[in-house]
Design a protein around this nucleic acid. Structure first.
Length: 586
RNA sequence: GGCCCCGUAGCUCAGUAGGAUAGAGCAUCAGAUUCCUAAUCUGAGGGUCGGUGGUUCGAAUCCACCCGGGGUCACCA
């Protein structure tokens, strides 16, 4: 599917020929040989750095080696031109027919164009969102949610076996606060005047229905109940209710996790103890006293002995505490057990998506995964930087107190799922992002969401017009018929350029999946849309380049094939981003 | 003070398993509409890739040290 693989084979065949002829050593390391499209299209269609990379081990000057390789490539008969340029690049040109007929591949694959075998079904676990279930999701969670989901889509397109996972932090102190807050709402539901919500509890209205439901289910029975038993009931009901809220929020963004993993269940299973026992057996746990942080010592610092994990053995800066001073586990201890559990479920590639404020935990988590899997699993922590909400260029100030708090739902309802998703992916994950409500809904080139969707809609507009055109009455313009059209009609530079551009898509998928960087797809789609819009306008200047030519059926069918294929590539890319490819904009 | 991220055109940003003359959008200037959606397109100007060294055929990309911005720093998840 990735046509550059095809050319890689041709190049490696040529190199193998030189090896068997004795010109090149048989044990040459070919891993650095790249076969890529050159940056400048005037250099040709394909380029390789083989001569420069191999010149030293071959003991030859790059240009001399390039001449040899280039002769072999020329003899392969695949190219209309092979030339050596610059310091030793070998540039190859393929005949137009090659490119034209590749359109049939796209038309056959449709929106599955770009699917790569790269992942070979390897299991990848992507953990994202994992927001504490203490309320609805706020806008700060949005970027990580969209990023993780798009990354999962991307890896699926690259043939990884992906699990989307959510870690429910339902065991910590914040959950106790949630339960207390819900209990207050329960008393309120029973008719008690609870006054204003005390400091330290969650004041949000979203707990009112939780209180009512508890009252409906239990009457006033909870009031007389033993505190531990009551707390269990209230906590469990509250967490369930909050997770329902969160699932609803995620659903509005088009996100569905396959696994929701409960931290509380982890505590109850005894898995934490067994995991740490394993580490203890490897002498990776000890009781010791940490040095206070250099430069800035907290006021309440005490040099007390703690149960520590030897994360410094795995590259961390200091060893990390596993138990709090009250004897409970720190968040880190269950997290270690959780990651072991992922590994034991067969996931050797682990990805977690965190907010920027958790950047300090990356090394310890990687250390833990290395220790617990004995190097069998790799962990990639993707850090999403903050999003600055803007309105007409002015930052929106948020605070929970003043009620100017923006939820994820607010954003989705104002600008729509597609716009939110695309904009969140239109920046590298580790760079801060401005999100301007005005810009995101604007219908102009300023707004990449619109620009890409508009290209797709234009394509469908042409297809609708073609279907309704008298000159094409009774003519089959289905995908199979278009694939069989005389594609050699596509001779204009802009047409060939568009074809070559869309054929890069499988390469983009592989590169983006390899790097765990879905934003590359967003940028690619913007550029592909740009190629299409340019061709469209060329037809305005030169009517001979219009897509529908009533008196030239062959050329029309070829051009419909071209734009139909473009539409599939755009749709395939949008599928990765989780954005709808709309067919009409009015 | 330690660690992590960032620093590329006036602005917002792409571009890293090292590749040829560093790219887009916005903004500025000059153009294109009897025609499939001008919601678009074409062209121009604009750069010591934060700095200095190093590695090599070749560095925005890798290494070291600085400068500037942000995040984080036992027991909060």
């Amino acid at each position: 599917m990735n046509i550059f693989r095809h050319f890689e084979e041709i190049v490696s065949d040529a190199l193998a020929g030189l090896q068997s002829a004795g010109t090149l050593a048989a044990d040459l390391d070919l891993s650095r040989v790249a076969v890529e499209p050159p940056r400048d299209p005037s250099h040709g269609d394909i380029s390789t750095n083989a001569a420069m990379v191999l010149s030293k081990p071959a003991g030859m000057k790059p240009r001399d080696l390039a001449d040899l390789i280039s002769t072999a490539l020329d003899a392969s008969g695949h190219f209309t031109d092979v030339s050596v340029a610059g310091p030793g690049f070998i540039n190859m040109t393929v005949r137009d027919t090659f490119w034209q007929t590749r359109l049939a591949d796209v038309l056959a694959a449709r929106t599955s164009y770009g699917v790569s075998e790269m992942g070979t079904g390897q299991k990848v676990n992507v953990e994202y969102v994992s927001a504490n279930p203490t309320g609805p999701m706020h806008v700060g969670h949005t970027r990580g949610a969209v990023f993780g989901d798009a990354l999962a889509n991307l890896l699926e397109k690259a043939s990884f076996d992906v699990c989307r996972e959510y870690y429910i932090n339902d065991a910590g102190g914040q959950i106790a606060v949630l339960a207390d807050s819900a209990f207050l709402r329960y008393r309120e539901a029973l008719g008690e005047d609870i006054g204003s919500i005390p400091e330290g509890l969650y004041p949000g209205d979203y707990l009112v229905p939780v209180g009512r439901a508890l009252a409906a289910d239990h009457g006033d029975a909870l009031l007389a109940m033993d505190e531990t038993a009551r707390h269990d009931i209230v906590r469990s009901a509250s967490v369930d209710a909050m997770m329902d809220l969160i699932r609803g929020d995620l659903d509005a963004l088009g996100i569905k996790h396959e696994v929701f993993f409960s931290e509380r269940a982890l505590h109850q299973s005894g898995k934490i103890e067994t995991t740490l026992k394993q580490l203890e057996n490897k002498d990776l746990i000890y009781v010791g006293v940490l040095e206070p942080p250099k430069g800035k010592t907290p006021d309440d610092w005490e040099a007390t002995p703690q149960t520590l994990f030897r994360s410094t053995n795995f590259g961390d800066d200091v060893d990390r505490a596993l138990k709090k001073s009250d004897g409970n586990w720190t968040y880190f201890a269950p997290d270690i057990a959780y990651h072991l559990d992922k590994y034991e479920r067969g996931y050797t590639h682990l990805i977690v998506v965190w907010g920027a404020d958790h950047g300090g935990s990356v090394k310890r988590m990687k250390s833990a995964v290395a220790a617990v899997s004995e190097g069998g699993a790799d962990l990639d922590v993707k850090i999403c930087q903050l999003v600055r909400l803007m309105r007409d260029g002015e930052p929106i100030k948020m605070s929970k107190r003043s009620g100017t708090f923006v939820t994820l739902r607010d954003v989705v309802e104002e600008v729509g799922k597609d716009a939110v998703r695309f904009m969140m992916l239109n920046r590298k994950n580790d760079a801060p992002l401005d999100f301007d409500f005005a810009k995101v809904t604007e219908q102009s080139k300023d707004n990449p969401v619109f620009y890409v969707q508009y290209a797709h809609a234009r394509i469908h507009s042409v297809l609708r017009n073609a279907a309704a055109d008298d000159a094409l009455k009774g003519v089959d313009i289905g995908d199979t018929a278009l694939a069989a059209a005389d594609l050699s009609c596509l001779r204009d530079e802009a047409e060939l350029g568009l074809i070559k551009h869309m054929l890069q898509f499988p390469r983009m998928i592989e590169a983006a999946a390899e790097a765990h960087e879905p934003h590359r797809i967003a940028f690619y789609l913007f550029e592909l849309a740009s190629s299409f819009h340019a061709l469209w306008n060329k037809g305005k200047d030169n009517p001979a380049l219009r897509f529908i030519l009533p008196d030239q059926r062959d050329a029309t069918l070829a051009r419909l094939a071209l734009i139909r294929a473009t539409g599939y590539v755009i749709a395939s890319g949008l599928e990765v981003l989780g954005v709808e490819p709309i067919e009409e904009m009015r």
